[in-house]
Design a protein around this nucleic acid. Sequence first.
DNA 1: TTTGAAAGCTCTGCCAT
DNA 2: ATGGCAGAGCTTTCAAA
Lengths: 157, 157
Amino acid sequence: MTPLDALDLHLLELIQADSRLSQGELGERIHLSTAAVNRRLKRLRDEGVIQRHGAVLSPAALGHPLTIVVEVEAESEQIERLDAMKQSFRDCPQVQQCYYVTGEWDFILVCVVRDMAQYTALTRQLFFQSNNVKRFRTLVTMDPVKVSLDVPVSAGP
Amino acid sequence: MTPLDALDLHLLELIQADSRLSQGELGERIHLSTAAVNRRLKRLRDEGVIQRHGAVLSPAALGHPLTIVVEVEAESEQIERLDAMKQSFRDCPQVQQCYYVTGEWDFILVCVVRDMAQYTALTRQLFFQSNNVKRFRTLVTMDPVKVSLDVPVSAGP
DNA sequence: TTTGAAAGCTCTGCCAT
DNA sequence: ATGGCAGAGCTTTCAAA
């Protein structure tokens, strides 16, 4: 994979914040021609640095105002059973994010739901119906202080 | 705010998955003219249902291959001190997400970092340097099973 | 509300540098 | 690698229904 130069990083920073900027506009900002921007973006997409272009929707506007973080401990850590759990989390639209982690718990989930009733139904489906959840703990979000998937682009300390 | 009809929801579902679909293409898929699609998208943006259009970048490709979940307990729950904490989390590029939650812990953070050394530096900056962190617990991600901000669009159970 | 068309932009490939 | 250009395609607005 081609290493990223300063212009690539600048480009990524801009389209991460707003993917609707036209290639002409991007070119102006980083002092490159439209064609050059076009080529770089294509390369970055082909190499997988840019994974996808998506619209970020308001959960509240779509009737899912509640964000809930769930800590989950698995019964058995057999790969097969863990994979089945992972798949059930991936398949559930209400599960926005799932991380398999070290430490006290095995999984951390972030869920978006309509109300507590829907969350209760979700726990039935995901945890009680599974035969591999030892225990889970629910953390209800009072304030989604920061929600993004943005990656630091500048060099960093 | 105008209530969302079935066509709006279909549109949102499509551009949430891929915001690069052209308005003509979207129109074909939901059987509407380009102009009608254009107007609905504008309305959805103006109303804040569509919050932003962004590119999702690969953390690994940008040199941030480690995702770390952190549970944080605050010393004092004075609004002023909590707000200061929230702001420090918002301002930190390595903190992708922060939720202020009920229960055992006060904050859940999701961080993306280059390596453990950078994470250590981050904890210094965010936790030790703060005068309001009682304790925190680190959960290192072994597998980012599902990472998205997608919101369920269909009606749901 | 909708469609259809017109004007203006944007993307993309080609060629010269 | 880059910039300039041209044709195709896309977005946006407007009149009409």
